[in-house]
Design a protein around this nucleic acid. Structure first.
Lengths: 118, 118
DNA sequence: TAAACATATGAACAATTATTCATATATTCA
DNA sequence: TGAATATATGAATAATTGTTCATATGTTTA
């Protein structure tokens, strides 16, 4: 991966590139971060998160709230679960989901602040 | 969209659904939020953001730092620009990009906190 | 002005992914 | 035990999207 067309390489450029490169998160951390935000990057999941910010909910209610099918919601809850954004507890036939920690809420809010400024 | 298989509807369920539904962000806000996070949800863009957190950089340097091509980076910078995550200034042949505001940094950091806890 | 360089952009292709449909699992209750 | 309900899951399809390649635009300098 080094046969690309490059800029003229002046000393300042090489130094800048090296300095920044050395301070980047490593590839795995970058990947994990991108994967995390990818989970937030879908309207259905965003709605689920928004709903769970208010209270614990079962799959069926989430489906109704989001105008979606229980099946679609179940698929999406699996994604949210894998990303540790939601947790669940079983009660009889139902499974109740809730937000896993406050980061979810905080990330949501930061995003909202950005949106509102634009 | 209302012919789905629904849960047994007890009074408590209907009330819960209504209460939550009434307090959801509207569809447009949800969509915009999802679109914003979608921008964070890509390793290349994540790396660009991470690099720009350190200093202003030209396209060519970003390409080198991220082991990518100037063309690919240019496409991604357009996405970041449209989301108001980066701004730019021209200087001669070069175009220097930098983070647009502190929300970017904050969202990045909140994401990192979440990752580290897992 | 022409050549060289930096960046941008459109089209095409490959890869990813959200939803749907069919079906499976698990729990309750008659 | 069997029927009904709630949730989960696998496969298929449709849509979205990141990169590449070719080329265009704009700037500097010889």
């Amino acid at each position: 991966m080094d046969e690309f067309v490059r800029c003229e390489e002046e000393v300042s450029n090489l130094e800048t590139v090296k300095r920044v490169k050395d301070n980047l998160l490593n590839d795995e951390e970058i990947f994990d971060l991108a994967e995390l935000f990818k989970v937030f990057g879908d309207s259905t999941r965003m709605k689920i998160i928004n709903a769970l910010m208010m209270e614990e909910l079962c799959v069926c209610d989430i489906a109704e709230i989001t105008n979606s099918t229980p099946s679609a919601i179940s698929h999406q809850l699996r994604v949210l679960k894998q990303a540790k954004l939601v947790k669940y507890r079983k009660e009889g036939k139902s499974v109740f989901y809730s937000l896993d920690d406050d980061h979810v809420r905080e990330i949501f809010e930061k995003g909202r602040e950005h949106i509102e400024e634009v």
